[in-house]
């Protein structure tokens, strides 16, 4: 059981988190033609990096969607970035 850091809540048990997606995918603009290949890549392509990887995770209790960098071999968490505008 890992301890993962939520950018808002701090360290919490792995069971409170869901993996959402790898980073780097942007929804194609569907008001224009989107080729089948491009749409399929958006839906299904995964890089499954061995080693350092950047992923989108959700902390379920506070619903924070954030970016987590981690090492998929050692399971070390390297850092998180919030996707939210921080209060000024």
């Amino acid at each position: 059981m890992q301890v993962l850091p939520c950018p808002f809540c701090g360290p919490r048990s792995e069971g409170e988190f869901h993996f959402a997606a790898e980073t780097g995918k942007t929804r194609p603009d569907t008001t224009r033609d989107v080729s089948a290949e491009k749409w399929a890549a958006y839906l299904f392509d995964q890089t499954n990096e061995k080693g350092v990887t950047r992923e989108i995770w959700i902390h379920l209790p506070c619903a924070e969607v954030f970016v987590m960098s981690r090492d998929s071999v050692t399971m070390d968490v390297l850092g998180t970035e919030t996707l939210r505008k921080l209060p000024t």
Binding site: C6, F8, C9, G10, P11, R12, S13, G15, E16, L60, P61, C62
Partner: peptide, 20 residues
């Protein structure tokens, strides 16, 4: 739950006994 006074959190929302 692994809820400890030594580990502060900005939120009181968590899972305990597997329940939100």
């Amino acid at each position: 739950a692994d809820v400890f006074a030594e580990t502060p959190s900005a939120s009181v929302a968590r899972l305990i006994f597997g329940l939100p």
